[in-house]
Design a binder for these strands. Structure first.
Length: 218
DNA sequence: GCGACAG
DNA sequence: ATCTTGTCGC
């Protein structure tokens, strides 16, 4: 599939923040509510710089994989909370470009709107591809929230600077919640519904589990 | 001002 | 993210 060019690549923290501020204006917080092909994305680190990016496309109905690609790369930026996306974007974009199929939803490992400048990895990937995207975080980042109830499917809003930026969602009874936020071209209700449906058996949604496995065992 | 901070 | 054993539970 086609992905928009990354350049110019930021060479400093202020440049990276400015790029996020600029691209943020392109995020759309509403879009389709049904999807045929759903991609999971993840990266596995192998040392200081080396990393493997993996993308697995699943049939939304059967949850069977229909295509999977990997790309070897290097961390393209130092790890700075809030600028995490710049580490993994080049390798993830390379992997996406190797896809023969075009998914209609990207399920990203990390945050989208629930980010210090409202532009996490999921937003960035959504804007570059033009595809609906959402982020699934495994630990809290920005904002505050109450613990969701124990039942699968219960959730509480994540509030940051007075606005709802995501949801803490219990995908399974007896496990820690995951943190869902919008990336691009998707409503929060739809993102929540998709994550819950994709996490029918485990804490994390199936597309991310597949991508994580592939990145670790290419 | 200080600490905490997605992966 | 990654370095790492045993242990509890289905």
């Amino acid at each position: 599939m086609h992905v928009e060019q990354l350049h110019p690549w930021p060479s400093s923290v202020p440049e990276a923040e400015a790029l996020q501020d600029r691209l943020r204006s392109r995020v759309e917080l509403d879009g389709p509510s049904a999807f045929e092909l759903i991609a999971g994305l993840d990266v596995h680190y192998r040392g200081d710089d080396a990393l493997t990016a993996a993308v697995v496309v699943l049939d939304a109905g059967t949850l069977e994989p229909v295509e999977q690609v990997v790309a070897q790369g290097e961390a393209a930026f130092p790890y700075v909370p809030g600028l995490f996306a710049f580490r993994e974007l080049p390798a993830l974009v390379t992997a996406l470009e190797r896809l023969k199929t075009t998914p209609d939803l990207l399920v990203c490992d990390g945050y989208g709107l629930a980010h210090p400048r409202g532009f996490g990895l999921a937003c960035h990937l959504g804007v570059l591809t033009g595809l609906p995207s959402l982020g699934v975080g495994k630990t809290p980042f920005v904002g505050t929230h109450e613990p969701p109830g124990d039942e699968r499917g219960s959730w509480t809003p994540i509030v940051h600077e007075g606005a709802t930026v995501g949801r803490a969602l219990r995908t399974q009874r007896g496990v820690k919640p995951v943190y869902v936020s919008q990336g691009h071209r998707i409503a929060l209700d739809v993102a929540t519904e998709q994550v819950l449906r994709l996490a029918a058996r485990y804490r994390l949604p199936e597309p991310i589990r597949h991508a994580d496995h592939l990145a670790r065992h290419p």
